[in-house]
C-alpha cells in the first residue's frame, strides 16, 4: 500500500523514506501464495531434518515422547495447513525447544546449530503471514463455507509483515556472517584452508591451495555483504539471486550444513513481490495473467 502522494509531498525526505519503510514493513497487503509455499516447504524441511531422529521408538523417555508427538502433530498441521498460523507457532516453538532445551540445556549438540535456529525462527515468522489462506485445508474449509453461504471464495491475500521480517532476518544473517569473516584470519585464506584441511585434505596441505583460498575468502565475504544489502531491493536482486542460490548450493554440497541451504533458498521467496510470485504461479498453472489470487473466483 503506497503512502498517499499528497501527504508525502510536504514531508522532508527523511520522513518520506520512513513512510516508505513503514509502508513496506507493516502496511503491505498481497497474495498469500508465497507465504503458503514457504509454510509447506518449512514443514518438509522440519521432516527432512528431524523426522528420522524423532520416531517414537527412538527416545522413549517422557520428554522424548512429548517432543516427538508435538513435533509430528505441529508439522503435520503446518503441512496440510489446518489452523496454519497456530501450527506455525507450534512448530516454531517445538524447534526452539529443541534448540534451547534439548540442545543447550540437555547437551544434544547437533540441535544447537544455526540451521536449527533458522528453521524454528522461520516457522515463527511465517505465522505472521497469511500462510493459511492458500494451498491449505484452511483455504478449502473457507471456500466450502463461502459456497454454503452463497458468497464468492475469500481472496487469497493478507498483510505481509511476516515476510518482511524474514527479509530482515536474512539480511541480518548475511551481514553478520560477512562481518564475522571481515578479519585478516579469514581474508588471508587461512580459515578456508583450515576448513578444507579439516573436511578434505587432513593434515596434508595441497599444493596451490593458498591462492584459491584467498580468492574464495574474499569472494565469500563480498558476496555475503552484497546479499545482505542487495537482495531486499528489486534492482540489485536480479543480479544476486543466482549467485546467492549458487553459493548455498556449493556450501550444501561441500560442508555439513544440513537444512541450512535449503531453508535459505526457500526463504528467498520472501524477497519477491508476493503478487509477482502469484502471477508466475498463475502462468505455470496455465490460468494466465488475469486470474490470480487477488481476484475473487466466481
Amino acid at each position: 500500500m503506497p503512502a498517499p502522494t499528497d501527504a508525502i509531498a510536504g514531508w522532508r525526505p527523511i520522513d518520506a523514506v520512513a513512510a516508505r519503510f513503514v509502508g513496506w514493513a507493516v502496511d503491505t497487503e498481497g497474495s498469500s501464495r508465497s507465504s503458503a509455499l514457504i509454510r509447506i516447504g518449512l514443514a518438509m524441511l522440519f521432516w527432512s531434518r528431524w523426522a528420522g531422529e524423532l520416531l517414537l521408538y527412538i527416545d522413549q523417555s517422557p520428554a522424548g515422547l512429548f517432543l516427538a508427538v508435538n513435533f509430528f502433530m505441529a508439522t503435520a498441521l503446518l503441512f496440510v495447513g489446518y489452523h496454519s498460523r497456530i501450527a506455525a507457532v507450534w512448530a516454531g516453538s517445538v524447534g526452539l525447544a529443541m534448540y534451547y532445551y534439548f540442545g543447550f540445556q540437555l547437551g544434544h549438540e547437533p540441535w544447537t546449530h544455526h540451521h536449527v535456529y533458522l528453521l524454528a525462527i522461520a516457522a515463527l515468522l511465517i505465522a505472521l503471514t497469511p500462510c493459511g489462506r492458500s494451498y491449505s485445508l484452511d483455504r478449502y474449509l473457507a471456500v466450502m463455507r463461502a459456497e454454503r453461504a452463497g458468497l464468492p471464495p475469500p481472496a487469497e491475500r493478507g498483510n505481509l509483515w511476516g515476510l518482511r521480517l524474514i527479509v530482515v532476518q536474512l539480511s541480518v544473517l548475511y551481514f553478520f556472517a560477512a562481518f564475522d569473516k571481515s578479519s585478516y584470519a579469514f581474508l588471508s585464506g587461512a580459515r578456508i584452508e583450515q576448513i578444507f584441511l579439516w573436511y578434505y585434505a587432513g593434515s596434508d596441505y595441497p599444493a596451490g591451495l593458498a591462492w584459491i583460498a584467498i580468492i574464495v575468502s574474499v569472494a565469500v565475504v563480498a558476496l555475503e555483504y552484497c546479499l545482505a544489502f542487495g537482495l531486499p531491493f528489486r534492482r540489485s536482486r536480479r543480479y544476486l539471486i543466482l549467485p546467492g542460490l549458487a553459493f548455498h548450493a556449493i556450501i550444501y554440497l561441500t560442508l555439513p550444513v544440513y537444512t541450512f541451504s535449503a531453508t535459505m533458498a526457500l526463504l528467498y521467496l520472501a524477497y519477491f513481490d508476493a503478487d509477482a510470485v502469484d502471477k508466475v504461479i498463475a502462468r505455470l498453472e496455465g490460468i494466465g495473467m488475469a486470474r490470480t489470487a487477488g481476484e475473487e473466483i466466481s
Partner: peptide, 10 residues
Amino acid sequence: RSWTMFSAIG
C-alpha cells in the same frame, strides 16, 4: 544467535 557460522570448524 550470533550468525558466526563455521567459525570454530577446523
